[in-house]
């Protein structure tokens, strides 16, 4: 009885090994085909094909797709190398010139190059980023009004009751306020301590461990908490009619969408991309994200519809 079963085990192990081998071979083959390095030689960016990359993040891919289609509409040849992964993976490719254009975010990108930067506000961050990119032999085009960053949100009712537009306005609220977020926020510099030090606003804290998810929204609606942190790009802000409070004193690191490009990108191409950036409002970005999350549409379709709406195609 033991023998056959042993053979059986052996066989299944062998099959497993074979499968793994085949799978890894297939993966290697795929990697070879789409290897950004293999397509990166030549004088891209100058007059030839512009290689556009994107993070493996749906929102970022939509922006990259918008760049690509806008350039194509201007008869500029592009090549898409999308879904490359995280910054550690693609930044060297941009620096080496294998990728010529990439949608980035001002604050986080600056922190990669200058980890000790104290810039927080959008314009300061952008100014520092322009210099930092030049040092790397790269350039950043105009930053877009669209942002993707942490933000303090309140309900519409609460904002209207106290006339709130900025975090500063919270000082007008005379009722005690409770801030609800993941427990690590309690001791982060942009948590209750930051609110007090930067804005002079006092809040108490209650933990809700779902990262600004449905429980947090429910708590806001129940008035159990008055203040929460939710990503500006999160479609739930719009869906639940929440109000984002403007961070006038830079509690959060500004994170505007900004195109990172090779130094030799043609002025014509840069002009096209700058128009795309200027047209993209923060609300637009939220809508684009929402279409991806709610309607599960491909990035190309979402980008095309938006470009047409803005008259950029």
């Amino acid at each position: 009885m033991t023998r056959p079963s042993r053979f059986g085990q052996l066989r299944s192990t062998q099959i497993g090994l074979a499968l793994v081998t085949v799978a890894s071979l297939a993966l290697t083959a795929c990697g070879g085909d789409s290897d950004p390095l293999s397509s990166g030689d030549g004088d891209n960016g100058g007059g030839g094909t512009i290689v556009i990359g994107s993070q493996d993040y749906y929102s970022n891919e939509i922006i990259a797709e918008a760049y690509a289609q806008a350039l194509e509409a201007a008869d500029i040849e592009v090549q898409r190398d999308f879904k490359i992964g995280q910054r550690e993976a693609y930044l060297p490719e941009i620096e080496s010139g294998s990728i010529n254009l990439f949608p980035e975010y001002t604050g986080p990108l600056l922190q990669v190059w200058e980890p000790d930067t104290e810039a927080r506000l959008a314009d300061d961050v952008y100014a520092d980023l322009v210099t930092a990119a030049e040092d790397k032999g790269l350039q950043v085009l105009d930053q877009s009004p669209a942002t993707d960053q942490d933000s303090y949100v309140v309900t519409r009712a609460f904002a209207e009751k106290w006339g709130l537009e900025t975090i500063d306005d919270l000082a007008k609220v005379t009722d005690p306020m409770v801030f609800g977020a993941n427990s690590e926020a309690e001791n982060r510099p942009n948590g209750p301590k930051g609110l007090k030090d930067t804005y002079g606003v006092e809040v108490s804290f209650t933990p809700i461990e779902d990262g600004g998810g449905p429980l947090t929204v429910k708590a806001l609606e129940d008035d159990d908490i008055q203040l929460a942190i939710i990503y500006t790009g999160d479609p739930s802000i719009k869906k639940n009619d929440l109000v984002t409070l403007e961070d006038t004193k830079g509690l959060f690191l500004a994170s505007h969408v900004v195109p990172l490009a090779s130094e030799d990108l043609s002025d014509e191409a840069a002009g096209v991309i700058n128009k795309v950036s200027a047209a993209m409002s923060p609300e637009d970005l939220v809508d684009l994200d929402a279409r991806s999350v709610d309607e599960q549409l491909p990035a190309a379709t979402i980008a095309k519809d938006w470009l047409e709406k803005e008259g950029l195609l």
Binding site: S183, T206, I208, E209
Partner: peptide
């Protein structure tokens, strides 16, 4: 309990984990 309320020893677990 600490998942959605300021209660109990779970607070140390949650706040220690992410930070």
């Amino acid at each position: 309990a600490a998942y959605i309320s300021d209660t109990g020893l779970g607070r140390y677990l949650f706040s220690g984990l992410k930070s």
